[in-house]
């Protein structure tokens, strides 16, 4: 993996620590099921925030509320102080990019094309300019390609730029999702289980990648079941249990919280058979 950092063309950076994303009172109901209950979460610039919780806790649903894929039943999400409309493309345009837990690449497009699609919000060329192909079009296209190649270099996929996305090994597909999300030049990157199904080396490489992303001035909100990964990486961790935010704080605080341990192990009287199990990891990660 390379650690060269491509230059970031949008330097409108707020000072570290200013609130970037503010979700307040987010509630998501599916019929009788309340998947997310009144969750508040703030992500500040320059931060890596973790979101953990047992399976079915509502983490992915919360992500979908943030990115406009779901319209929250109640609550608002604002980014850099303005309330986001619940439309995915507008959220991305505003500066929030995401990856998916169940990889959702454009399978029959090449690796490079996948990243180019990610550039959509940062380019303007419409149908007419594609048909006429004036010098402006060629310049924009060349710039997009150069930027996409930079990102592939950054994620270590440059050698496979012409491969179809569906032919990549699993770990590289996850990386490509990150590269594609970064192509939209986000201020905040949402990662949904970026290391699920990866081996320890790949996980460590992803760790480095997330740090490198943060060093570019992009804040990261990451869902993960791999506790080592989370506690290595995050400045702050929020725990979601049955749709509710149980605890939020530094790694140490969360690690020692009784309620978190109980939530992962189940209620005390059920805990007997789960003796050997630690708070680390869910079954996705043991291959």
């Amino acid at each position: 993996m390379t650690t060269t950092i491509p230059q970031q063309p949008t330097p409108e950076q707020a000072p570290d620590g200013a609130p970037l994303l503010q979700a307040s009172g987010v509630i998501m109901r599916f019929g009788g099921l309340t998947a997310v209950r009144d969750v508040d979460l703030t992500v500040n610039t320059g931060e890596i925030v973790g979101l953990i919780g047992p399976n079915g806790a509502g983490k992915t649903t919360f992500f979908n509320c943030l990115t406009g894929l779901y319209v929250p039943t109640e609550g608002t999400v604002s980014y850099r102080g303005t309330v986001l409309p619940p439309k995915p493309h507008l959220v991305t345009k505003a500066g929030i990019a995401r990856t998916f837990q169940n990889i959702r690449l454009f399978a029959n497009m090449t690796v490079l094309e996948n990243v180019l699609v990610g550039r959509h919000t940062r380019t303007r060329e419409g149908l007419m300019s594609a048909l006429i192909r004036g010098p402006g079009y060629h310049r924009a296209e060349a710039r997009s390609r150069a930027r996409a190649m930079e990102l592939l270099e950054f994620t270590g996929l440059a050698a496979k730029a012409d491969h179809l996305a569906r032919n990549l090994p699993y770990g590289e597909q996850r990386k490509l999702e990150i590269a594609r999300a970064l192509a939209s030049e986000p201020g905040l990157l949402l990662l949904d289980e970026p290391t699920a199904g990866m081996n320890p080396q790949e996980t460590r490489a992803t760790e480095e990648l997330v740090f490198a992303v943060r060093d570019q001035g992009i804040a990261v909100l990451v869902i993960e079941h791999d506790m080592r990964f989370i506690f290595n990486l995050c400045d702050r961790v929020a725990v979601l249990v049955q749709g509710e935010k149980l605890v939020e704080g530094s790694s140490e605080v969360v690690q020692q919280d009784e309620r978190v341990i109980a939530a992962y192990l189940g209620e005390p009287f059920e805990a007997a058979p789960a003796e050997g199990q630690q708070t680390t990891g869910e079954q996705e990660n043991d291959r």
Partner: peptide, 13 residues
């Protein structure tokens, strides 16, 4: 290929 992912990439479907 995937309309949901496409809109999440900023495409106005």
């Amino acid at each position: 290929e995937d309309e949901t992912a496409a809109t999440a990439m900023g495409i106005n479907g």
